[in-house]
Amino acid sequence: MNTKVLLVDDSSTALLMGETVLKQHTSYQIVTARDGAEAVRTALAEKPDLILMDVVMPNMDGFAACREIRKQEPLKGVSIVMVTSRGEPMNVEMGYQSGCNAYLTKPINAAELLEMVRMLLGTEADECTSLPGKPVMREEGNIA
């Protein structure tokens, strides 16, 4: 079965960017959602292996969507990466409190995104992942 990644963002530009990078350099199946509420519904329906979640979105923000997904038993193993322009320490902390596994700030570095995704999905890296870039990453529960 194909590894599935759910991209969640209300910006078409951001979705296009993420989708292009992942489709061209991985074999993952990509599904998308445009807000937090749709993300929860899509996650339940599609059972993705990884979710890349924007924070500032209509209907339900990324933090609330992350908390909601963490309550769902069928989605217990899913990894969630916050991908957002909100890089302030308080927001990073809120992200981890909501249950995300990692936090990336926009503008997205394509190599960094691939490295993060491959690391969380446990897939092989190629030369792309050796490009410079330091994602903000920490173990759940520890403040970076």
């Binding site: 296009l16 960017m17 292009t20 503008p107 997205i108 190599a111």
Partner: peptide
């Protein structure tokens, strides 16, 4: 993968 980010962003 060289300049991957730049090309992808210009495409977007």
């Amino acid at each position: 993968t060289r300049h991957l980010g730049a090309w992808t962003k210009l495409y977007a």
